[in-house]
Amino acid sequence: MISIILISTPFLFYLYRLAPKADTWDLGFMILDNGGFSTVKVFVHALMTKLMFLIFTTIWFFTSKHWWRFSILIPFGLFFFQTTGVINQNIKYTEDFNFWSVVPMLLPILIGMILVSIKLNKESRLLDIREQISIEMEEIKQKRRAS
């Protein structure tokens, strides 16, 4: 699954090339506007750039087994903050917008990521233990057959 996501990221990033140099883009199921940028193409490019970093830091956090992986949450928070800035491009809102405004939205996401990471870590350890048990059982069976 992670491989598919990683393989698809260049295609997602270059999605902006399909966007028109207009104020709106009718996708059939929704209409996308320029979000305060000069054209929809510029908006999609800015959004995809930020989303790519969110995807990469999320995958990095979940796949890292090192003790320092929680420090990856710092750039994740920064990219989340920047992504919300791209999505909410109203001038008045941007002037009043700072990092502390994002914390209430970011905290549940970070807590969820930590909880999922802990669960995945436990599952990974269980799989390793099961593999070790099956290897030891095979060795015991081979010893009994040999004797």
Rank of each mutant, 00 (worst) to 15 (best):
I74D: 05
F53C: 07
I118M: 10
L110F: 11
W100T: 14
V116S: 08
P108G: 11
T84E: 10
R69L: 07
H66K: 15
L106V: 13
F97H: 08
M137F: 14
S117I: 09
D128C: 06
I109S: 03
Q82P: 00
K41H: 07
L115K: 13
V42W: 05
S124V: 00
L126M: 15
T63I: 12
L110Y: 08
T57L: 09
F81C: 02
W60N: 09
F53Y: 07
Q89F: 14
V40Q: 06
I59A: 07
E95A: 13
R125Y: 07
L127E: 09
V103K: 04
W67N: 12
K122Q: 05
E95R: 12
K92R: 07
V116L: 15
W68Q: 01
K65V: 10
L78H: 05
T83K: 03
F79Q: 00
I87K: 02
G85Q: 03
G77E: 01
L73N: 05
L107C: 13
W100P: 10
S117G: 14
K92V: 13
S134R: 11
Q132H: 15
A46W: 04
M137C: 10
Y93A: 13
F80C: 02
V44N: 04
I140L: 15
P75V: 03
I109A: 05
F53D: 08
M48K: 13
D128W: 05
R130C: 07
M52Q: 10
N121A: 07
S71T: 14
N121T: 14
I135H: 10
E139I: 14
A46K: 05
T94L: 15
T49E: 05
L106T: 14
T83R: 06
L47H: 04
T83M: 10
L73V: 03
H66V: 13
R130V: 03
L110N: 09
W60Q: 12
E123S: 07
W100H: 13
E139Y: 12
L73P: 02
I87P: 02
I129F: 06
T58Q: 01
R69N: 10
F81A: 00
K122P: 00
L78I: 11
F80I: 04
V102E: 11
G77M: 01
S71K: 09
I135F: 10
S134P: 08
P75Q: 00
L120K: 11
Q132T: 13
S101G: 12
E95K: 11
I59P: 08
V42G: 04
D128A: 08
D96L: 14
W68A: 06
N98L: 08
F80A: 04
F43V: 01
W67R: 10
Q89E: 10
L110Q: 07
I74A: 13
I133G: 00
I140R: 15
T58V: 02
N98P: 06
K65M: 09
Q132C: 12
I72G: 06
V103W: 02
V86P: 00
H45C: 08
E123Y: 02
F79V: 04
V40T: 08
M113T: 09
I111D: 11
G77L: 04
G85P: 01
R130P: 01
Y93R: 15
L115V: 12
P104V: 11
F79D: 01
A46P: 05
S134A: 15
V103F: 09
N121S: 12
F81R: 03
K122L: 03
N98H: 11
D96R: 14
I109K: 03
E136V: 11
T39V: 01
W100C: 12
N90D: 15
S64R: 12
F80V: 00
